Simulated assay, not measured.
Amino acid sequence: MKQSLRKVLISGGRGLIGMRLSEMLIDAGYEVAHLSRQTSRGHYCSFRWDPATGQIDEGAIAYPDYVVNLAGSSVSEGKWTEERKRDIMASRVGGTNLLARELREKPHHVKAFISASAIGIYGDANGRLLDETTPPAPADDFLADVATQWEQAAHQVAELGIRTVVTRIGIVLSHEGGALPQIARPIKLLAGAALGSGKQYMSWVHIDDLCRLIIQMMEETEWQGTYNAVAPNPVTNQEFTTILADVLHRPLVLPKVPEFGLKLMMGEMSEIVLASQRVSAQKVLQQGFQFEYPLLKPALEALYSDQE
């Protein structure tokens, strides 16, 4: 690859995925810049933007050869008040709309636009196997509505003739943040238990596999359209909890946490842990991607081996 094709702009670059992706891109010889609402700090060049007001630094979209759009307020921090839900939606859809506007109106040399979405688009589907042709859940499912509108915003970029890849991300496994430390905490305190029935499926992906997948989507022109970013072996919540307890060398001593208790504690946000999503990885496998961590136990062991 020519050296001139080595600049990547990441929205949400300071988030969990963005920080790990930035490290892996630097290691692979890329230049990386972040789009951020704060002024620059740390190792990375950054451009300022504010999706809420539609403002963005003049030179931002002229910088990259590739744009990776990860920006979005966390869905798992704090109860879903109406204000919080507006922020979750606006941070994703507003940011993607702003990038689409800049790509439409400003000179640039962007070769590909990789935009995050989430498997929440499928809603609660029990044990049904879900692939990229499965229609989104109805709009009364908040997470499905967010992901649907997020993807529609990204399609504006595809309409400009820019190669666009939408990646529906599953539960990202990292001990640095996200869902895993929250699931592991009660297990470490000997208070771990399956959630709800325990039969709901969890479709997960190790953070390094996700970042490798995003880089492959960037680099290889065959990638276009929508892909599930999940490991090929989803597990039930009961299986996940049991395997994680085994990796952490802790017993599971409590019965399941009942669904009504979770709804009482978490409100509408409980659908994050109660929805069953058994998501297929077949399309990314057929495209030639190879997972380093296709199975849950080795993925968790790799994450916790340095914390023994």
Rank of each mutant, 00 (worst) to 15 (best):
G192Q: 05
D141K: 02
T134N: 03
K188I: 09
V172M: 00
G178H: 01
R163K: 10
Q156Y: 12
A154M: 03
H155S: 15
L143V: 07
A154E: 04
I171L: 10
D131M: 08
A137W: 01
G196V: 04
G192A: 06
H155C: 13
E151C: 08
A153F: 02
D140K: 08
V172N: 08
T167G: 12
L129R: 12
A194R: 07
G178P: 00
I187P: 00
P138K: 11
I171M: 14
K199N: 08
L195G: 00
G192M: 03
E132L: 06
A191R: 12
V166E: 00
L160M: 07
L173F: 11
V157K: 02
I162G: 05
P135N: 06
G178S: 09
E151A: 04
I187Q: 04
A158P: 04
A137P: 01
K188N: 12
E132V: 05
G196M: 08
R128V: 12
G196I: 00
T134R: 01
V172C: 01
S174I: 02
I183K: 09
E132I: 08
L173D: 02
T164M: 05
P186C: 09
E159N: 15
A179L: 15
L160Y: 09
D141S: 06
I162M: 08
E151W: 06
T164G: 10
P135C: 12
I187G: 01
Q156E: 13
A147D: 01
L143W: 06
W150E: 00
A179M: 10
D131V: 13
Q156F: 12
D145F: 12
P186W: 04
L173I: 08
S174Q: 02
L195V: 11
L160Q: 12
G170E: 00
R185H: 13
S174T: 07
D141C: 05
T167H: 07
R185E: 11
I169T: 07
A137H: 00
K199H: 11
Q182W: 13
A194K: 09
F142V: 03
A154L: 10
T167E: 12
L180G: 03
T167L: 15
G192R: 00
L129A: 06
A153C: 06
G178F: 05
P138G: 11
E151P: 05
I169H: 02
D141M: 06
A147W: 00
G170M: 07
Q200K: 04
Q156N: 14
I183H: 01
D140S: 08
P135T: 07
A158Q: 15
L180W: 01
G161N: 07
A137N: 05
V146C: 02
V166F: 03
A139Y: 15
E151Q: 12
R128M: 15
Q149L: 10
A158D: 14
A154W: 04
